[in-house]
Amino acid sequence: MNWDLLQRYGVQMLGGLNVTLSLVAVSVTLGALLALPVALARISDSKLLRGVSFSYVYFFRGTPLLAQTFLVYYGAGQFRAELEAVGLWWLFREAYLCAILTFTLNTAAYQAEILRGAIQAVPIGQSEAAAALGLKGWTTLRKIILPQAFVIALRPLGNEVILMIKGSAIASVITVYDLMGTTRLAFSRSFDFEVYLWAAVLYLVVVEVLRRVWDRLEIRITRHMRPATART
């Protein structure tokens, strides 16, 4: 352990960890909001909606996140005049916001597929029963289908959050000083390989904590599905 090095770059790297966490939290949350309409479009009756949502999901799941990030960050610069005209340039000027935008679009595509699978896994009898009770389509979705789909989707969604934490390291390539970015900076100044090992430990801790939180969440959210005797 090189204490001198830790003293010099430790705080900076913890700041980077904070950026990583905010990057993931914001992207995953915005992605979730976008994922629901995309998932519903994927299973809608309209051919147009199905086609558009399918293309969106296929593009973002079939291409590398790094290439998508370059496309947004560098590609947007080309349309500066147009973006300024519609007042959206602030979003593309900042590397951090570009990363958020790209990660949001990317995770929304993955989350939409998870949600679609979960919605389709809810037994058809549930929506038939809702229809028999005279519930409207929207009410059925909100009160009957989505709560059950959410339970099914919880575990894959947790995996998606972990993939996002790992993927967020890509932001460092477009000059965002997240955990990976500050680590690369520290390495380029000190040439001490140890900083990469610290970063590795920090990432592993974050992923492990999230995994445990998610296990708890799953136990809590499925508590109505266990037999009474199993409860302690």
């Binding site: 972990i162 993927g167 390539v173 590795a200 492990e208």
Partner: peptide
């Protein structure tokens, strides 16, 4: 499975 692929690559 826990490390970012980019970090593994650098390591």
């Amino acid at each position: 499975r826990g490390l970012p692929e980019l970090l593994t690559l650098f390591i």
